[in-house]
Simulated scan of single mutants.
Amino acid sequence: MAEVVLEKWRRWGDELRRLRCAAKKTQAQLAGLLHVAPVTISAWERGTRTPNRDIAQAIDEKLETGGVLDQLWCALANVREIPEEWRNFATLERQATAIRAHQPLVIPGLLQTKAYARHIMLQWEPELDSDQLEHQVTARTSRLDALRRTALTFVLDEGVVSRQVGSAELMRSQLDHILNVIDDHRIRVSVIPRNAPLRPLMISSFRIMTLPDGRLVGHEELMWGVHVTSSAVEVEKMASVFGSLQAEALSPGASADLIADLRKEI
């Protein structure tokens, strides 16, 4: 009897095959890691057998995909909730094809230098020992390198780039870093000038992430935690506010000129 190919799951199988080959694993090697038969891997890749979500997560772990197969499984199975592991914003970042972020108080973590991040962390968590501090600094400042294919749009209040954090040298270096990274066409930084009376007043930072399947996830940083949502109503509100903030901001080119001028004044 001919095998029945499940078109929906053949797409998942194609992605499994791509990721397996990228990891330089044979079907037999992956089967050994998962404690299944090689023919099972073959069936998943051909779309003749339906994987469960536990399998998708296990393969993601073994191949170190960052959750790609689990995300695709959820999309194909029409699972609309946010998987628990995606609530970690770094995981969301790695999966996102585009990120829009607003920060009213400090330089966004993705744009921070090590010195700036270290100063901020010591102010917030003075009890950190040197090893813990350096681990967190490295984790924060290395995130940008993992997003080479992600479109990044930042809208910052002018106070974020004009307010001196740490020494003058530290702040000049931080502004230089922003000016350098925005040479990358993927990264756009817009600054809302002080004289923008129509700007929405925000006291917390937030971001909107576009996932590969088109879903939008909102992520708001609060005083003692974060709020993650995929609710269409909540994300739409975030997107509307972001649009209003962006409308009041300078163009990326004019923002770069403003940042350069502010750097000279430090």
Results as ranks from 00 to 15, higher is better:
F242A: 01
S255L: 11
V233Q: 13
H227F: 12
V217Q: 04
S240P: 08
F242W: 08
G218T: 01
V235W: 07
V241M: 00
D261S: 14
D261C: 02
F242P: 12
G225I: 11
E248C: 14
W224Y: 12
A254Q: 10
L245P: 03
G243S: 14
A256H: 07
L258E: 06
E248I: 03
A239D: 13
L258K: 06
E221K: 05
V217C: 09
E234D: 15
K237H: 13
S231G: 11
Q246P: 01
G253W: 01
A249H: 05
V235I: 00
L216D: 05
A247P: 05
V228K: 02
M223H: 11
D261R: 15
V228P: 07
A260Y: 04
A260R: 13
G225V: 11
D257F: 00
A256F: 01
K237R: 15
F242K: 07
D261N: 12
H227A: 08
A260C: 04
D261H: 12
V241S: 03
L245H: 05
V228G: 04
E234T: 09
L216S: 07
T229A: 02
G218F: 08
E220V: 15
G225R: 03
T229E: 05
A254S: 12
A260H: 07
A256W: 00
A256C: 00
V228C: 10
V233S: 12
G243A: 12
W224F: 14
A247R: 14
S231K: 00
K237L: 07
E221N: 00
A254L: 10
I259W: 06
V228L: 04
S251Q: 04
L222A: 12
A254T: 08
D257K: 11
V228Q: 01
E248N: 12
Q246M: 10
Q246A: 13
H219E: 08
E221W: 01
G225F: 02
Q246Y: 11
E234L: 02
L222P: 02
K237W: 04
M223K: 10
L250I: 04
V226G: 03
S240A: 13
V228Y: 09
A239I: 02
V241W: 00
E220Y: 04
V241P: 02
K237P: 01
W224T: 15
E220I: 15
S251P: 03
F242C: 08
A247Q: 13
P252S: 10
A239C: 13
A249W: 06
A260N: 11
A239T: 13
